[in-house]
């Protein structure tokens, strides 16, 4: 439905390309909803699930829709501390999304720079970076999280640090693999012949062409980061239990799975699934749209 006569601005064009896929639009709508919930959690939640004064252990493990002793109704039930699951999910979404996105961005930035530099310069720089990567990849996340917990204590920021530490090496290796191939191609050679600055060659020419596989890995890794945070919680190394993320809610509810109290981990699981699905649907389309070579 674009006006034929006008010259298209880049944004208009971008939007037209993006909206070609209906699935991506659904994803975008979902993502908008999820982000809105995350931002507005304090306003729209029936309860502040992080304020212990508002919880009552006597209301614990109520089934969805069951009325509590005080007459309140919890539509998605309560967990073992009497926390309203709906509010818990809203707040948890906020934390999980924040942790997943923040850690991915930081890890991506670090991994990207080191990976590109290693591939571009080669030689001892490559050796140094790649051997650090070897060490990093072999260092288990739990051990890192445990050391951070012992030294720095508990908190959202520490979890992000742990996740970044675990993940950057992964990106570094992925970027390097693409860059190694790209580096040998004519356009890089051409850029170099033109005596462009090295930083310019690396970031303006090498980087954009290494991005496609990286974006795949990154969007999957946002999900992975959220799941990893859940796993750390499952191992007792995650966030403070009074301020549960989605992952912590799931791992708390995990132990009730066999006993039929499904809602404690089922609903946060659904929320996580929807969130990750939305991120990936949008990212899939973004990748296709932004990739210069895929433009028809």
């Amino acid at each position: 439905m674009t006006e034929p006569a006008r010259v298209e601005g880049p944004w208009v064009r971008f939007w037209r390309d993006f909206s070609e896929s209906r699935l991506a639009l659904v994803g975008l709508a979902l993502l908008a909803l999820v982000v809105a919930i995350a931002i507005l959690a304090p306003v729209i939640s029936p309860q502040n699930p992080y304020d212990l004064a508002q919880l009552d252990v006597m209301d614990s493990k109520l089934a969805p829709g069951e009325a509590s002793g005080t007459g309140k109704t919890y539509w998605l039930g309560t967990d073992d501390q009497g926390r309203d699951m709906l509010s818990g999910i809203f707040y948890g979404l906020r934390i999980s999304l924040g942790v997943g996105v923040a850690s991915t961005i930081f890890a991506l930035a670090i991994g990207l720079v080191l990976g590109l530099v290693a591939a571009y310069f080669g030689g001892w720089v490559d050796t140094l970076v790649m051997r650090i990567v070897d060490i990093q990849l072999s260092f288990p996340a739990i051990l890192i999280a445990l050391v951070l917990l012992a030294v720095l204590g508990q908190g959202v920021d520490k979890i992000v640090v742990a996740l970044v530490t675990v993940q950057w090496a992964y990106y570094a290796r992925t970027v390097r693999s693409s860059a190694l191939v790209e580096r040998q191609k004519e356009y890089i050679e051409a850029a170099r012949v033109l005596a462009l600055g090295q930083a310019r060659v690396v970031f303006r020419h090498l980087l954009p062409n290494c991005l496609p596989p990286l974006i795949v890995v990154a969007t999957v890794q946002v999900a992975h980061a959220i799941a990893l945070e859940a796993t750390l919680s499952f191992l007792g190394l995650g966030l403070p239990i009074t301020e549960p993320s989605l992952g912590l809610l799931i791992s708390n509810g995990f132990q009730y799975l066999l006993s039929g109290k499904y809602w404690i981990s089922f609903y946060p699981g659904i929320a996580l699934l929807v969130t990750i699905m939305a991120i990936n649907l949008v990212a899939d389309q973004l990748r296709d749209v932004l990739n210069p070579r895929l433009r028809k």
């Binding site: 212990l52 004064a53 252990v57 501390q81 445990l146 917990l149 007792g236 239990i241 009074t242």
Partner: peptide, 21 residues
């Protein structure tokens, strides 16, 4: 630990909870 913290909010003691392996 978490339940105790909850009870303490009722007697005016602010309690945070930190649990670890």
């Amino acid at each position: 630990a978490q339940a105790i913290a909850q009870f303490y909010t009722r007697i005016g003691v602010d309690a945070k909870v930190e649990t670890m392996p």
